[in-house]
Design a binder for these strands. Structure first.
Length: 501
RNA sequence: GGGCCUAUAGCUCAGUCGGUAGAGCAACGGACUUUUAAUCCGUGGGUCGACGGUUCGAGCCCGUCUGGGCCCA
């Protein structure tokens, strides 16, 4: 990187300039501000655990070398205090006294060490006269000099600063630390649940020649080596179904999908998703699997099926979950009977009466789904399976075994948002081809979310796919359901537009 | 896409009627051997998001743009 455009020392804000001067001053005195290693015999957490319950004003005689970031600093004339914090948030007090370290070392501590610096301190583990577990320094050494001041630890950072500088957020905000550690706990729980049910995890392409498996606009890219357009996947569905054809009868994938659409408090352009397929299952058995995945994840992070959101609200994810019919929900919401056979014109009248803005590109089923979202979605706070979606918006789903115009598809709603979807999969390759051709026709008419005809996928289907149930669930949204957080808090580094100078 | 709110010191925020830019924490200098957001005395730190307009005079009023948030679609 070029150094030409970096600000000169005089241009820097006062506090940044002073810290750079301190770094230079250390180097002048042959003190390394960024040493290759520093003494460390225990973590702060290990010390806290070992000496729990130690009485006031005790000297243990145990000498350790401990490291941590300086979070608070209380310098007095001859006895200085500082609070060290390590990555998981564990804190420990450090004490430096004139009679232990001498004038020169104490003066250097006061002058050279700032909030945010990482230090190593060697000394005896004691409790102070106020009972605080502490390390009383015999010596100390700088582990890494911070050139930027930490934000005020007692006022929350603004939401934008938290997202743009997550590394600082993780240093100062306990909830940021626990959120970051909740995601891997949930991932582990999901994989354990699948493993116990004999599912095999696979990884399928994210760079795809042809996108499919969902109704969404893709990100487009280009391969220099192959000289052709490539797409970032919007869903792994068509590859997982190839796996089922090949005999991986219980299969799942947890990984990132990319959708080139709007971003808001529940949509991120890249998001983690589970997809899973179970041969010889159907939409009901896959619903049971989905419920088990969610409930086990709740148990893993909350120790209970009742989870407590960050605002204190509790949500009960336990028991069997309510099932409602999509068209019943619409009928109740609009006060007249609506079915999958209700004609487009009637739906349009209903939507207009509701004051909805209607996109002329919407087909009949899409209009019904939009009416559902308008009248019923916000009511679905407790976990609810919404059963029976229109067949014309579900091109990869088999038709309902009894209800005409309906597909064996459910959406799972929690807290008013869609958490997961599940199907009895369409396995008739001839019908599948017709549906995809129909999609391609919509695409050629300008529907940017329509699917393409994937000939290789159809060829796989023609080798016979067993009857199968399938599901997809947003991992970020699962974390939202468990914590009540917005999607940008469940993702460590959500996409943000670059800062402008 | 539409509407509303928002951008001021390193961080979090005030800023009245358009008239010399404020606080807390942080920083700098000094005092202090048991502090817990230590305390006390003193000091410095600002392109008020960007550009344009109105005005004798703009952080404040108007317009455009950019970033962020919320609501609607």
């Amino acid at each position: 990187m070029s150094t030409e455009n970096l600000p000169t020392e005089e241009d820097l804000p006062e506090q940044l300039r002073i810290r750079r001067e301190k770094r230079a001053s250390l180097l002048e005195r042959n003190v390394e501000p960024y040493p290759v290693s520093v003494p460390r015999t225990k973590s702060l957490k290990e010390v806290r655990e070992k000496y729990v319950g130690l009485e006031i004003d005790v000297a243990t005689g145990d000498v350790e070398s401990l490291t941590g970031r300086i979070i608070f600093k209380r310098d007095t004339g001859k006895l200085c205090f500082a609070t060290l914090r390590e990555g998981d948030g564990t804190e420990l007090q450090a004490m430096l006294s004139l009679d232990k370290v001498g004038q020169e070392v104490l003066d250097s501590w006061k002058a050279d060490i700032d909030l945010g610096d990482i230090v190593s301190i060697t000394g005896e583990i004691i409790t102070s006269k106020r009972g605080e577990l502490s390390i009383l320094a015999n010596s100390w050494t700088l582990a890494s000099k911070s050139l930027r001041p930490l934000p005020n630890d007692h006022k929350p950072m603004s939401e934008e600063t938290r997202v743009r500088m997550r590394y600082v957020d993780l240093i100062v905000r306990p909830e940021a630390r626990s959120n970051a550690r909740m995601r891997p706990a949930v991932m582990k729980s999901l994989r354990d649940t699948f493993d116990k049910a004999n599912f095999v995890e696979v990884e399928t392409p994210m760079l795809q020649v042809m996108h499919g498996g969902a109704a969404a606009r893709p990100f487009k890219s280009f391969s220099n080596a192959y000289d052709m357009d490539l797409y970032l996947r919007i869903a792994p569905e068509l590859f997982l179904k190839r796996c089922v054809v090949g005999g991986i009868e219980r299969v799942f994938e947890i990984n990132r999908n990319f959708r080139n659409e709007g971003a808001d408090s529940s949509h991120s352009p890249e998001f983690a998703m589970i997809e899973s397929y179970m041969a010889y299952g159907d939409w009901m058995s896959i619903a049971d699997l989905t419920r088990t995945l969610v409930q086990n994840a709740a148990m893993a992070v909350a120790g209970s099926h009742v989870v407590t959101h960050h605002d204190g609200r509790q949500a009960d994810l336990g028991g069997q979950w309510k099932q409602i019919s999509l068209y019943d929900a619409i009928s109740n919401g609009v006060g007249e009977s609506v079915t999958a056979l209700t004609p487009y014109a009637d739906l349009k009248k209903i939507a207009e009466k509701l004051g909805m803005k209607i996109d002329p590109k919407w087909i009949t089923g899409k209009l019904a789904e939009e009416i559902f979202e308008h009248v019923a979605r916000h009511l679905l706070v407790e976990p609810t399976f919404v059963m029976g979606f229109p067949v014309d918006t579900s091109p990869l789903v088999r038709a309902h075994r009894e209800l005409p115009g309906v597909a064996e598809k459910w959406d799972l709603y929690i807290d008013g948002f869609e958490l997961a979807t599940g199907y009895s999969e369409l396995i008739d390759p001839v019908v599948q081809r017709d549906r995809l051709v129909e999609q391609a026709t919509l695409g050629s008419k300008g529907d940017l979310e329509a699917m393409q005809v994937d000939e290789d996928f159809l060829r796989a289907m023609e080798f016979a796919m067993p009857p199968t149930g399938g599901m997809g669930m947003g991992v970020d949204r699962l974390l939202m359901a468990l914590t009540g957080l917005g999607i940008r808090e469940t993702i460590l580094f959500p996409l943000v537009k670059p800062e402008v100078d």
